[in-house]
Design a protein around this nucleic acid. Structure first.
Lengths: 250, 250
DNA sequence: TTGCTTATGAACGATTATGATTGATTGTGG
DNA sequence: CCACAATCAATCATAATCGTTCATAAGCAA
């Protein structure tokens, strides 16, 4: 039985019965326990299911909200991949800043059981972080209705209360010459301040942001490590001279 | 049977019958008493049910639901009446502080078209305020998971950025001698600070809070005008000596 | 063929869920 | 009030499941 066939079979069975047991899959597919286990791990990484002790269940069954599996997010798969890699950079006990945004949002499921302190300026992120049982501080300040991000002088001064080990920023464009940019100057200011309070800064972006230039400049390339899902050879060459680039291949 | 399956089964049964006995669960699931007991402990911990001697029951309506029309809030009618009156005290252009809580939450629908600036420390309130198109500031700080209220030193210092015309506080008890009280000292500190930054302070409470004393004192009675839905003659007499009381009759 | 990557299965110690046992606690019926 | 039965929390040993590692097998390009 081919790997893809097995994956499809597992998902179909899961859809029918809501839950599957590993032993049950071993018997019906004829594959070894190790293989089934690997399948489940893979499928969990792409958020197709959620593992539990002894088997797997449909995701979002117990706690999660729809927003996390919201398929309307562009480049969701890529963002999840980026987020998973980013999460691997976090140490136990770190204090981290999570920028408001859809990419940083995907980091949250990977933060479980990590003993962290998280600070964010994103309203949507607070709730999700809370469901994961993570100690969460919100910066507060003026709320931007459309995006649920907190911005402005109060947000900035609230940030001064904290220091971060790591800071994860979502960005709208990166360019060798113009650096990291985003449409809203208010948000740019928040990102700037958060970064300046962190030991390390990571900019998360999918490939569609390459060589894009938005209105407000956040910082030069060398002030943050860039994490992207994919990038052309030439573009990469131009970037490598300026900063560290981590490409998270599929 | 998978752990999650058992949990789901228990909750489904509980939803149907309102109560479940441990012995009944042992027989129908085939699991041992120890396991069922552990299940109930887990589910109680995540507030899905409430344990009683010999089994479990549906949890009381302790949780604050974000929905305005949610009838599960105790004394909803009364709270709405209180909220409506409270809203009549607001002037065009006022800056107001809205405490986290179910009573203050009911104020929000009455704030439409009032040209206000609202500051709150309640997560659930921000979203509702935003839907009404009201300029909203959140204090930020550490989030209290169960209630969605922000508390702690960061919240307090964030408050210092603002000045209010009016401050609306939810309280858990009022008493002629012991003043206004609430269970959580952290929340009490926030209410205290908010009040001290306001020209006028109003304490909102339904009749069940009369002569109740909670753990943490917020302030003496005379520091705020009390708004209640109904109150006994004798109690009112005792209060009138200390502060202004507004009774919002049906 | 060789060299390389990928998928698989088996084996290991570590982790987690479970079931039985104990003695303490609580409710019930005299 | 007491005695008895049911229920409880805590503990322990066992069984199931877990992630990891390693060796083998299969696919594929040079």
């Amino acid at each position: 039985m081919l790997t893809n066939e097995r994956h499809a079979y597992i998902l179909r069975l899961l859809d029918e019965k809501q839950t599957v047991k590993i032993q049950e899959l071993v018997e019906t597919t004829g594959a070894s326990e190790s293989t089934i286990r690997r399948d489940l791990t893979d499928l969990e990484h792409s958020r197709k299911l959620e593992r539990v002790f002894g088997g797997a269940i449909l995701p979002g069954q117990n706690l999660m909200e729809p927003s996390i599996s919201d398929k309307s997010t562009q480049f969701l798969e890529e963002k999840i991949r980026i987020a998973e890699f980013a999460s691997s950079l976090i140490q136990q006990g770190d204090s981290i800043f999570l920028d408001a945004g859809t990419t940083t949002f995907q980091l949250i499921p990977f933060l479980k059981d990590k003993d962290l302190v998280v600070v964010t300026n994103g309203l949507t992120l607070v709730e999700a972080l809370n469901e994961q049982g993570i100690t969460t501080y919100l910066t507060g300040g003026l709320m931007k209705p459309r995006t649920g991000a907190f911005v402005g002088s109060h947000t900035i001064s609230a940030l001064r209360n904290y220091r971060f080990d790591i800071c994860f920023l979502g960005i709208n464009g990166f360019h060798p010459e113009y650096g990291y940019t985003t449409p809203d100057p208010e948000e740019a200011a928040v990102k700037q301040m958060a970064s300046s309070l962190s030991r390390k800064t990571f900019a998360l972006a999918d490939h569609s942001k390459a060589n894009k230039i938005s209105f407000a400049k956040i910082m030069d390339l060398d002030r943050a490590t860039l994490i992207v899902d994919e990038i052309s050879k030439e573009a990469n060459a131009g970037l490598q001279k300026k900063t560290i680039v981590k490409v998270v291949a599929p």
